[in-house]
Nucleic acid binder design. Structure first.
Length: 216
DNA sequence: GACCAGGCACATC
DNA sequence: GATGTGCATGGT
């Protein structure tokens, strides 16, 4: 039985308002941000993206042509810079060689084909793939992350560990398949995670105590 | 100085 | 399948 996720969403929305989330001037910038933000604070990612922009490197051909070691130096503030440089290169190779470097062309691919393709890129896991799908390619896909697990757990929506696909399937089953809803919901969960449901033992006074929802 | 932050791949049991 | 480890920076 699916919990009343929609009610939970509505109460978050009422509390925090629309988030209009995931800054990025272009779909490519959003995709780059999705890879850079892996296990990393967004502040650090923003620094790295600014540096790429200032260097005039935030385009598919430019990133594709750049040697990994050189790219690594530009994105250093985002942490894991050698790993992420290679992951960016892998994604750019996929985009350039498969779709002529065009995010618009990539977005035209049916979701059932697109998600497995993204997951096949070394360095793109479920959360990164779904973030790219939802925010860069505007596909209605629910993004699960550490916040989702923690908040749903704390507020009694789930009990015990949930694998990524299982939690995503639950959300898909419980919510209307709506792009903006999914974008806002994930953004609201991140906001909630930052302001309220902190990692133990730092969750003292929960301003969302009134949001308790029972059932699973 | 420890802990945290929009994860992922790979090795091992 | 579950669990452990390396990757690295910058803010609190």
């Amino acid at each position: 039985m699916a919990p009343d996720l929609f009610a939970f969403y509505e109460r978050l929305f009422k509390h925090f308002g629309p988030q209009g989330w995931w800054p990025g001037d272009t779909p490519l910038e959003v995709a780059v941000g999705a890879i850079l933000t892996q296990n990393t604070n967004w502040q650090n990612v923003a620094l790295a993206i600014t540096r790429l922009k200032q260097a005039g490197l935030l385009s598919a051909p430019a990133l594709y042509a750049l040697p990994p070691a050189e790219l690594a130096e530009h994105i250093r503030p985002a942490g894991y810079f050698r790993v992420k440089a290679q992951r960016l290169k892998n994604f750019l190779a996929y985009l350039m060689e498969g779709y002529g470097g065009s995010m618009r062309q990539l977005a035209a691919v049916p979701l059932a084909q697109l998600r497995p393709e993204l997951l096949a890129v070394n360095g793109i896991g479920p959360e990164t793939a779904d973030s790219i799908l939802l925010y860069a390619l505007e596909k209605p896909v629910f993004v699960v992350d550490a916040y989702t697990h923690r908040i749903f757990s704390r507020h009694g929506l789930i009990a015990g560990p949930y694998a990524y696909d299982r939690l995503q399937a639950m959300c898909h089953a419980a919510l209307p398949r709506d792009l903006v809803l999914f974008q806002e919901f994930h953004a609201l969960l991140v906001r909630t995670g930052k302001e309220c449901c902190r990692p133990r033992p730092r969750c003292h006074t929960c301003p969302l105590a009134a949001l308790e929802v029972t059932g699973i």
